[in-house]
């Protein structure tokens, strides 16, 4: 018989005419279901599953009210992470690119978020407010965009200059901004902000984007992520809260974030656009996994590293088949 590549493929595809054995696949399947179910029940009864309670704006404003307050000011001033993000939330930045591909920008601001109104003004407007905060809100709403921007920017810079230590902020032309920030902080402390951010004055709501993004603009969520060792820069993608196993299957995705140039935001172009590059890289590698049978050098690896000698040991021994060179 010819051992040419074409014939070899036909040979492997041909129906088996050698010895057979009884093999009850239905019984095997039933046993598998029983074994897996028993294991799952045992693990569930013994170990349960992870469930750390979600963070709330109430918790943030209560435990670190200065940080919440300063974040509220940054939303008004347009300096927060969300306000400066770019697509899909706004057009404040171009976003990431891979070479000439500006996919983030091209996809457009399809999920618009206006950090001033959505995060601060609209939620405050749903509340019954004390006189000074109600008049601050009225002043803000009546002011020109230029005045609003001047007040908020002045105050935001002043807070940044004293590194967030609110008691050290000197007096200045801040307009109603301090009162608005105080009003929002009080509202959050009372527990009213979580639902107001979600509902945005409506009834049915299933989109938590605004809550999540506002959360991420401060240090509360970030600190909690660090404490739970969930940061992306420390393999956090694979990890789970508590001592539970996480998404270990994300190891390769997570891996790239640990090594240069991906782990260095200063490194251009790859480090600065790591998210986009890693997406493309993983897309390519996933395609590679699917196409393994067609990739020279990899598709012949199983012939060269003889793990198959173990798998088919019985067949090789019974027929006295020695390993052949491939």
């Amino acid at each position: 018989m010819s051992t040419g590549r074409h014939t070899k493929e036909e040979f492997d595809a041909a129906p088996w005419h050698g010895k057979t054995r009884k093999y009850d696949i239905v019984k095997e399947g039933v046993i598998a279901v029983v074994v897996v179910s028993v294991l799952a029940v045992a693990l569930s009864l013994l170990l349960g599953s992870p469930d750390d309670t979600p963070l709330t704006f109430k918790g943030w404003a209560t435990s670190n009210s200065d940080n919440f307050y300063a974040t509220a000011v940054s939303e008004l001033a347009g300096t927060s992470g969300t306000a400066t993000y770019g697509a899909p939330y706004n057009k404040a930045a171009d976003g990431l690119n891979v070479g000439p591909l500006w996919l983030q920008k091209w996809a457009g601001a399809s999920r618009p978020i206006d950090s001033v109104n959505d995060f601060v003004i609209a939620p405050l407007s749903t509340q019954v407010l004390s006189t000074d905060i109600a008049s601050a809100l009225a002043t803000w709403k009546a002011a020109t965009a230029k005045d609003q921007s001047t007040w908020a920017t002045n105050y935001d810079s002043a807070i940044a200059k004293v590194e967030g230590k609110l008691s050290d902020v000197p007096a200045g032309n801040y307009g109603p901004v301090p009162a608005l920030a105080q009003g929002l902080t009080d509202m959050a402390k009372a527990g009213g902000l979580d639902a107001a951010l979600l509902s945005q004055g409506g009834f049915f709501q299933t989109d938590n984007t605004k809550q999540i993004l506002f959360f991420g603009d401060g240090s509360y969520l970030d600190d909690a992520g660090t404490a739970a060792n969930l940061q992306g820069g420390t393999w956090g993608m694979m990890n789970e809260t508590g001592r539970y196993p996480g998404q270990a299957w994300l190891w390769l995705y997570s891996f790239w974030y640990q090594i240069p140039p991906f782990n260095n935001e200063e490194s251009k172009p790859i480090g600065a656009n790591a998210d986009a590059y890693i997406m493309f890289l993983m897309g390519g590698l996933s395609l590679g996994l699917i196409l393994i049978p067609l990739i020279p050098g990899i598709k012949t690896l199983p012939m060269r590293i003889p793990i198959h000698r173990g798998i088919w040991r019985q067949y090789y021994e019974e027929n006295g088949i020695k390993r052949r060179k491939h």
Binding site: P54, L96, Q104, L230, G232, T241, A276
Partner: peptide, 29 residues
């Protein structure tokens, strides 16, 4: 729970960076 808050905040950047986030919104429960 907290895990989903965290994962949605972190993961959105990856999807947004290649434009997929415009339709596949991980923060949208």
């Amino acid at each position: 729970n907290f895990d989903s808050q965290w994962i949605s905040f972190e993961a959105k950047d990856g999807f947004n960076s290649v434009g997929v986030g415009a339709w596949f919104t991980v923060t949208n429960l």
